[in-house]
Structure formats: C-alpha cells, structure tokens
C-alpha cells in the first residue's frame, strides 16, 4: 500500500465515519431519555439531504438553507416524539418487552420516504456543493484529493461530539438528560419536566441528523431509499462505541468508517462483509461496547 493511498483511504473512511458519528449521537440521545431509538432516523437524513439540495438548487444562500433545514428537522423531531414515541414509551412497564417504538418510528420513516419519493422521485441525485462553485471543491491533503464537504463533515462531527460532551456533562440540560436517563420517575420527583426533556432530545437528534444530511448530500448520491443503510451503519458504530458517552460514539463512528474503507481497499468483493464480521467479533469480546459498563440487574 502506497502512503498516499493509505491517506486517501483513511480520509474517505473518516468522512464516512463522521456521518455515522452524527447519526449515532442522535441514537444515543433518544435512547438515553426514552429508551427508544428512532428507526426512521435514516429517513430524516434523506429528507435533510433532499431539502438541502432543493434549497441550493433554488439559489438560496447557504446560511438560509442551513436555517431552513434546521427548522424543518426540529419540527420533525417534535412530531415523531409526539406522535410515534410518547404514548408508547409512557405505557411501557418496567421489564415488559414493549418494542412498539421500533415499528412506530419505522412506520414514520416509511411515510417520510414516500413523501420524498413523491416530491423528488425515486432516482439518485447529487446535491450541489455547499462551499464552492464550479471545480474548486477539491483540496489536496498529503497528496490525496479531498472534497471540502468531507473536511466539513469531519469537522462537524468533531465539533458536535465535543459540544455534546460539554453539554451533557456541564450543562443543566445535560443534568436533566442524565436524570431522566437514570430513572424517569426519580427525575419527575426532582422536579424535572421529563416530557420536555424527552421532546428536546428528539429535537437535538433531528438537528444532528439534519447536519449529517446536509453534508452527505454533496458527498454521496442521495435517494429516497438511502435511510436504512446509513442508520444500520450508525447502529454498528454505536455498538462499537457503546451507549454511554459521545467520545465513544466518535471513536465507534470513525472506526467503522475506516474499517469499511480499508476493507473495500483490501478486498472489495467482500468489502461489505468484513465490517460486520469485525463488529460481531468485537461484540463477542466487549458485549457492551467500548465504553459500556456491565450493570447487574440486582434490585
């Protein structure tokens, strides 16, 4: 392997991994507050990408596109929490296997997917570049070509993971999330507005997903069907990192992206197989992820 090749492959992997990291942070947050994952999160990503594309094509300035997408995503986050999650999690009894949220959020995502297909069709598209016009979207880094968006998404993942870390461990909001995550009823007794905390976690999830969607649009082609694919990879990332802290998600996400890239370089015939074998082996050794700690369910 030539050194510049390695750099090129690693950079590609890091860019992909950053997308997974952003999605994984969303999974992590909603899991913390509601013990539910949004199985429609991938479709959120697709919608953000299409909205971003529509905005850029309409000639809106970047900042307006970002704000517009953020507003739409936040609204969607509220909607899914209110209509697909709230009733289901509020009646789940401790211990009883209520997995209604898997299908309700999956159903919500399918509806979004259909809306995208109706609005834009079922084909593939590229979003126009966010930061440059014409040819100059490529920069050279250690002899390897990199798209500006690839750098941007890497930076976004790093900054947002850092911000999340600070918010979770240093802010009031973080304390509320931690309290709700620990126990809903205790949190309620402490005077925390549990409903609001849960709702906001869905809003933040949607915003993180929106950021990933905006950046992935110009990077990889987009299509109404793409959601589940990204969601599953984000899920693999969070399984490596563990449902415990944003640093783990960053490591898990980047690791999965790099493994994917490397295995496509080494043997592309089974390029999609190796990452999942590695995740499987990893989970045999560390069944609760990198930073997950094993809790005994002694009460």
């Amino acid at each position: 392997m030539i050194a510049t090749d390695l750099v090129q492959v690693l950079l590609s992997g890091i860019a992909l991994g950053s997308v997974y990291t952003l999605l994984a942070m969303g999974l992590f947050l909603t899991y913390a507050t509601s013990r539910a994952l949004n199985f429609g999160q991938g479709d959120f990503l697709a919608l953000a990408a299409f909205l971003g594309m529509a905005g850029m094509l309409a000639g809106m300035p970047l900042i307006a596109v970002v704000i517009g997408v953020a507003i739409c995503m936040a609204a969607l986050g509220m909607l899914i929490e209110r209509f697909a999650v709230r009733r289901i999690i509020s009646r789940s009894k401790a211990g009883a296997a209520h997995l209604g949220w898997i299908l309700s959020t999956l159903g919500f995502g399918m509806m979004l997917q259909n809306v995208i297909a109706l609005a834009w069709g079922k084909s593939r598209y590229y979003s126009p570049p966010l930061f440059s016009s014409g040819e100059k979207q490529l920069v050279s880094l250690f002899g390897a070509g990199v798209f500006l968006e690839e750098l941007a998404i890497g930076a976004a993942a790093l900054v947002l993971a850092g911000t999340m870390y600070v918010l979770l461990y240093r802010s009031d909001w973080g304390r509320r999330v931690a309290a709700v995550s620990f126990d809903r009823h205790t949190a309620m007794l402490l005077g925390i507005d549990v409903k609001r905390t849960v709702m906001w976690s869905y809003v933040v999830m949607a915003l993180l997903t929106g950021a990933a969607g905006l950046l992935v649009g110009p990077l990889s082609s987009i299509q109404s069907h793409m959601g589940m694919l990204f969601l599953l990879k984000a899920f693999a990332a969070i399984s490596i990192g563990g449902f415990t802290n944003p640093a783990g998600l960053l490591i898990g996400g980047i690791a999965f992206g790099v493994i994917e890239s490397l295995s496509n370089y080494v043997d592309s015939t089974f390029g999609d197989l190796y990452p999942f074998i590695i995740v499987l082996l990893f989970l045999i050794v560390r069944p609760m992820g990198l930073f997950g700690e094993r809790k005994t369910d002694v009460r």
């Binding site: 899920f235 693999a236 969070i238 015939t269 197989l273 499987l280 069944p287």
Partner: peptide, 28 residues
C-alpha cells in the same frame, strides 16, 4: 452462545450482523 453476554441493542447488533453475513455469503 456468542450473544450470551450481549443485551438489548448490542444483541440486536449481533443478530443483525449475523443476518447480514449469511445474506452476503448467500449472494456472493
């Protein structure tokens, strides 16, 4: 057996990966 120590979402991932692996091998 290999999933014995994994719970909830990690278990979901283990089984998901198993399904993928079988599916990919069947295809290739």
């Amino acid at each position: 057996s290999i999933a014995l120590r994994a719970r909830t979402h990690y278990l979901a991932m283990v089984t998901l990966a198993f399904g993928f692996i079988v599916g990919i091998l069947a295809q290739r």
